[in-house]
């Protein structure tokens, strides 16, 4: 799959560049004028010979390679917004090369801004594909991992992403996935590493995946609360919330089955009729909204705790 995609991209890129051979040079005179006016002084330093034809220019400037690389990345990531992806991709490349040229003598400060940039780019890659598109997601996780390792390797240390960077990445990822900080904190606390530890790829991938799944889970739990809550202004009845949380906990507690049966059992346990049953049992039709209530925040954290308790740690 990857190979054929690469072949196609290469084909597209060469098509793009070879088309230019036949292009009429509309602005040739204008360009000649510009040359005479001395605007190319900077150019002559970097390029030894002035390109004569468009093809020569394109190959000298490495446009084919540049576009091929961009198309490959795009097809690999299958971004939902290809144009935005290309804008970001070229933007990343440009700021990288600009920093590479200017930021050499900056010492520590240069390193930290570079680290920050790699982090931003790693996060960008992680957000490109939803985790349910597992192969694209894994691919992007790999790219992000390579980016973060690179920063570190330049500091001449052993393999893997540093624990501190890993923890920071997961924190930012949860934040970007709109998980409230207080809800995410217990999870991050559970899966974080020591600052000095080197995180291998598989652990890194599991950590990122856990955060991505967790953000979906939190969103579901929020809609669950909204379903229990009769109107958005007042908090939901505590007994109902506890019944729903109980059903949710039950559904998550199906690890004794084999894989596929486990999914079926879990979804049966959280089916609307089961939830309705649990809520009907908890709800006392006699009293009208006078019982204790539960705030959305508390519900969310309780639901999150159910999830976090089931996160297994890798050794």
């Amino acid at each position: 799959m990857a190979k054929t995609e690469q072949a196609k991209c290469t084909h597209h890129a060469s098509e793009l560049t070879s088309k230019e051979e036949s292009l009429p040079l509309v602005t040739k005179t204008a360009m000649a004028e510009k040359r005479r006016s001395g605007g190319s002084g900077i150019l002559s330093d970097s390029k030894p010979a002035k390109p004569e034809t468009d093809t020569e220019f394109l190959s000298q400037a490495g446009i084919g390679v540049l576009l091929r690389g961009a198309l490959l990345k795009l097809v690999e990531a299958r971004s939902e917004d290809p144009i935005g992806f290309l804008a970001d991709h070229f933007g990343n490349l440009a700021s990288e090369s600009e920093n590479g040229a200017s930021g050499c003598g900056d010492g520590d400060q240069g390193n930290s801004t570079e680290e920050h940039q790699q982090m931003t780019r790693a996060l960008w890659h992680l957000r490109l594909a939803h985790h349910s598109q597992r192969s694209a997601f894994n691919n992007n996780v790999r790219i992000a991992y390579e980016l973060l390792v690179q920063t570190r390797e330049r500091r001449r240390m052993g393999g893997g992403v540093r624990g501190k960077i890993y923890a920071e990445l997961l924190r930012c990822l949860c934040c970007e996935l709109e998980v409230p900080e207080s809800t995410a904190a217990p999870l991050l606390c559970r899966i974080q590493c020591h600052d000095h530890e080197a995180v291998p790829f598989e652990l890194f991938r599991q950590g990122v995946l856990t955060c991505a799944v967790f953000s979906d889970y939190v969103r579901k739990s929020q809609s669950l609360y909204a379903a229990v809550c009769p109107c958005p202004e007042t908090p939901a009845e505590r007994a109902l919330c506890q019944a729903v949380l109980g059903a949710l906990g039950d559904a998550l507690d199906t690890s004794h089955c084999a894989d596929s049966a486990h999914y079926l059992e879990a979804s049966a346990k959280i089916a609307p009729c089961k939830l309705a049953e649990a809520m009907a049992m908890a709800h006392n039709p006699g009293d009208t909204q006078t019982g204790p209530t539960m705030e959305p925040q508390e519900f969310e954290e309780a639901a999150a705790a159910l999830f976090i308790a089931r996160v297994r740690l890798m050794s």
Binding site: L66, A70, F90, L93, A94, S97, E98
Partner: peptide
């Protein structure tokens, strides 16, 4: 002069 990669970024 503007930078070719930067140009592509701005274009998109």
């Amino acid at each position: 002069q503007f930078g070719i990669v930067r140009y592509f970024a701005e274009y998109f």
